[in-house]
Amino acid sequence: MRWRFRQISDWAVSWAGHPVVPVTLVAFAVIWTAVGLSFSFPRGWFLLTNMIGTLIIFFILLLVQHSQNRDMMALHAKLDELIRSSKAGNHWIAVEKKNAEAIEGMRRQHHDQISKTAN
């Protein structure tokens, strides 16, 4: 089930990111509004359209966020492996899980070490 969701979400995110999609949606909205105004559709029709559009946007937002979170986890794993295999200090591994003050302290300490070696 999990791999199926990943497959569907990857497909939906790549489809939603295609450059033709926004142009098509704007054209569809203009045509929909023109047809609705010319045939005097009731106000509820436009409210329903607005609700459906909002739900679709919310769903796509969640899919994009899911995809971005997965990509960031993969990126962090790759960076951690590069740190492990290099001469860099292993204290930088999984630094993204620390709080902001700890990260800032590590950054300042690293900057101070670079300044001392440069002088």
Rank of each mutant, 00 (worst) to 15 (best):
M1V: 05
W3T: 06
R4Q: 09
R4C: 06
I8G: 03
I8V: 14
S9P: 00
D10L: 03
A12G: 02
W15H: 07
W15T: 13
G17W: 15
G17P: 01
P22A: 12
V23F: 05
V23K: 10
T24C: 14
L25T: 04
V26H: 13
A27E: 13
F28N: 13
I31D: 07
I31G: 04
T33N: 07
V35P: 12
V35I: 15
G36N: 05
L37G: 15
S40H: 09
F41I: 08
F41G: 01
P42A: 06
R43Q: 08
W45I: 06
W45G: 01
L48S: 14
T49F: 09
N50Q: 11
N50I: 07
N50G: 13
M51Y: 05
M51A: 12
M51Q: 06
M51V: 09
I52L: 12
I52Y: 05
T54H: 07
T54F: 15
T54A: 10
T54D: 05
L55E: 04
L55K: 10
L55G: 11
I56T: 10
F58S: 01
F59R: 10
L62K: 10
L62I: 08
L63A: 14
L63Q: 02
H66P: 00
S67T: 14
S67H: 08
S67D: 10
Q68W: 13
R70G: 01
R70W: 14
D71C: 12
M72Q: 13
M73H: 14
A74P: 10
L75E: 10
L75M: 13
H76R: 11
A77W: 04
K78M: 11
L79Q: 05
D80C: 15
E81H: 12
I83N: 02
S85V: 03
S85A: 10
A88Y: 01
A88L: 08
A88E: 02
A88R: 11
N90F: 04
N90L: 08
W92K: 02
V95Y: 00
V95T: 02
E96G: 09
E96R: 07
K97V: 00
K97A: 08
K98H: 04
N99R: 01
N99W: 02
N99Y: 01
A100L: 10
A102L: 03
E104T: 08
E104C: 08
E104S: 12
E104K: 10
R107E: 00
H110D: 04
S115Q: 08
K116L: 04
N119Q: 03
